[in-house]
Structure formats: C-alpha cells, structure tokens
C-alpha cells in the first residue's frame, strides 16, 4: 500500500514531508487516521474530504488537530466503525478510570471498575 499523500490534506502543516505536532495527543490522533487508512477502513480521498468539510464548517478557533479529531469522529460514525452512544459510554468509563487512578500510576480502563 502506498503511503498516504499528506500534501493532499487541507491546511496541514508539514516540515518537509513530516507533520508537526505540538502535543502527544495530536500525534496519536494522526496515527489513528493513518492506522485506519492502512487497514482500509476508508480511502485517503474520503478522509481528505471529511477533514476539509470539518475545517471549512468550523466557526470557532479550534486548532488543526482539534478539527482533525472532530473529523475522525465524523468518519468513524459515517463508516459505522462506532456510534455516538458507544463513544459517550467509553468517555464516561475513561473518566471513571481517571478518578480511580492515583496520580502517576498507569491509567487503565479496568481501573474504572475497581471499588
């Protein structure tokens, strides 16, 4: 499989051929999209289009990777890889896991179910 053409994406900041991240979660969000694409969950033009639509419909001042993540949620739902209910339920689970995890310990989902 060819590596995806990053230059085809609206608004992406590249240094040479490489994306520029300012925080680790941005790189994780980036990797998720590439990972899904590599597993053929969607084609690259499909992703480019969803991302572009998300960017152009944003009226706030979200950062590039905030919009990237929003577009990822959109394409995940569009392709029925997950749905709103599942996502909300999982967010709640992680929030419970965070509260149950002392500072500095590894944060794991099963911590949500520790009493």
């Amino acid at each position: 499989m060819n590596p995806p053409n990053l230059k085809s994406l609206d608004g992406i900041v590249l240094d040479g051929d490489e994306p520029v991240f300012s925080e680790p979660w941005e790189a994780q969000a980036f990797a998720l999209v590439i990972g899904l694409y590599e597993k053929k969950a969607f084609t690259w033009p499909e992703w480019a289009e969803v991302l572009s639509t998300t960017i152009h419909s944003d009226e706030g001042c979200a950062s590039y990777y905030e919009l990237w993540l929003k577009a990822l949620e959109t394409i995940v739902m569009k392709k029925a890889l997950s749905n709103k209910e599942e996502i909300l339920a999982r967010e709640t689970e992680w929030q419970n896991a965070l509260i149950a995890t002392p500072h500095g310990q590894p944060i794991e989902l099963q911590n949500a179910y520790k009493s």
Binding site: E23, W25, Q28, A29, L32, G35, L36, K39, A41, Y65, E66, L69, L72, E73, V76, L81, S82, E86, I87, R90, E91, W94, Q95, L98, I99, A100, T101, P102, H103, G104, Q105, I107, L109
Partner: peptide, 23 residues
C-alpha cells in the same frame, strides 16, 4: 487522581474502541 485534557480523553476513547473492534 489522574487527569487528561478533553482532547486526550477523546483520543483515548476512539483509540480504545477502534483497537477493541480490531479496526
């Protein structure tokens, strides 16, 4: 206890769901 930003929470949520489903 531990904290994540909203963005970290969203990424971890999607990542854990997509990994679990094998996507």
């Amino acid at each position: 206890h531990s904290h994540w930003s909203d963005m970290e929470l969203k990424v971890k949520t999607l990542e854990s769901l997509l990994v679990e489903k094998g996507y």
